[in-house]
Amino acid sequence: MVAVLLFGCLQQPQQTQPTPTPTAAKPAKESIKIGFSISLSGSGAGAGTEQYRAYEVWREWVNRNGGIYVEEYGKKLPVEFVYYDDASEPARAKSLYEKLILEDKVDLLLAPWGTFIHLAIVPVIEKYKIPVVGNTAGVELSKINELQTKYEFFTYPTPETTAMAYVLLLENIGVKRIAILYAQTDFTVANAKWNKKFIEDRKFADVVVYEGYPLGSTDLKGLLLKVKEANPDAVIVHSYPADAILVTSQMKELDINPNLFVLGVGGQTLAFDQKFDNKTKEGIVVLNTWHPDLHPEAAELYNLYLKKYGHNPPSHAIGLAWISCITLQKAIE
């Protein structure tokens, strides 16, 4: 279904009736114009920047190999990007995707960063019937069913799946008292909810703190003091890039040092890695969904990223972005 939809997006309009007089043929396409918004600033900038870099590595890799083959033209076409910074704001992203479609007249779209921004653009892509292969969006099955989207394809594991992975780890190492904190957004709320449910269902530990905080918070000491008083064995924080740094800094300041500290996706960014020394990072567990050894193309893109940017790609956003790009490419071809 994706291949059919994408092929339709790249086709030139076909005449259904002969015209009375000859008209000049439209020039053949010289490139495939792909548009997206991405979080280069705001709360998601740490991961959004890396997702953008992953897109760039893929584009350069594709163009180095001649482009994407389009059967209609019988040749490969290079990829051209049109993109904007959505500042990690869902409403801005929604507006930008409409601009990409109506004003920039892109052929295809790539996904933005983050679950809450993926969800924000669903009405736009449904309206204009342009498919998007999602990547950094963990959406509950019930929400996917509620959306009834025909044009956004979610590829990230559901929160139910990732939450169970956390819980099995906690149960396996014998944790008995757990604090769960979460940023108040779709993805992080869902993960926290399923963590709590699975822990309670499996009856291996007590949830001693369960509380959310606004995304964009600048001080979480009050909440963290509750955690310190509860004295948990493990602390789970479902975070995004900026609040992952905030939580870790303030836990260190308040001398909160649980046996296990699980930081979700927010602790994977280069910004987080560069912020803290190895002693602080020792023992922190983060969620990831890919490895360069999983597929030959992933390994090739990994090496190109390392060569271009000079550091090990630390974020799950990179692998997810490449998966979505390669899926788009294969659907066109």
Rank of each mutant, 00 (worst) to 15 (best):
V286D: 15
E140F: 02
A91T: 15
G216P: 00
Y97Q: 05
G222K: 12
N231C: 06
A299N: 13
T149Q: 07
V237Q: 13
V189F: 02
L119N: 01
V285P: 08
S39A: 14
R177Y: 00
N63E: 05
L5R: 03
T16G: 04
F187A: 11
T158G: 01
L263Q: 13
E30N: 12
F81A: 09
Y156R: 11
P78M: 06
I245C: 10
K196D: 04
E89L: 09
K127V: 07
A190E: 04
T21S: 14
N145E: 14
G46I: 06
G114P: 05
W113F: 11
V175A: 15
A3E: 07
L40N: 01
Y151N: 02
Q148M: 03
L301C: 07
E56L: 06
G264M: 14
E211V: 00
L109F: 02
L260T: 15
N63S: 07
V285M: 12
E71A: 13
I121T: 01
H238G: 06
T115M: 01
M1T: 13
P18W: 11
L306A: 10
V265P: 08
Y309P: 00
H316E: 15
T136G: 05
G319L: 09
K226C: 08
V79P: 01
G174T: 13
Q11G: 13
E71I: 06
F81H: 05
I34Y: 03
V70E: 01
E171P: 08
Y309I: 02
F261Y: 13
M1K: 11
A192F: 01
Y309C: 06
T162M: 07
N191T: 10
V175M: 14
D206M: 04
D277V: 04
S31I: 08
H291F: 07
S142R: 10
I125Q: 09
K33E: 05
G48L: 02
K330E: 15
G222P: 09
G138F: 04
A120M: 03
V57G: 11
L102V: 10
N312E: 15
V82S: 08
D255L: 08
K226A: 05
Q268D: 15
N278A: 13
S88H: 06
N257G: 05
P214H: 11
T280E: 15
A179I: 03
V82F: 07
V133I: 14
I284V: 15
A28F: 11
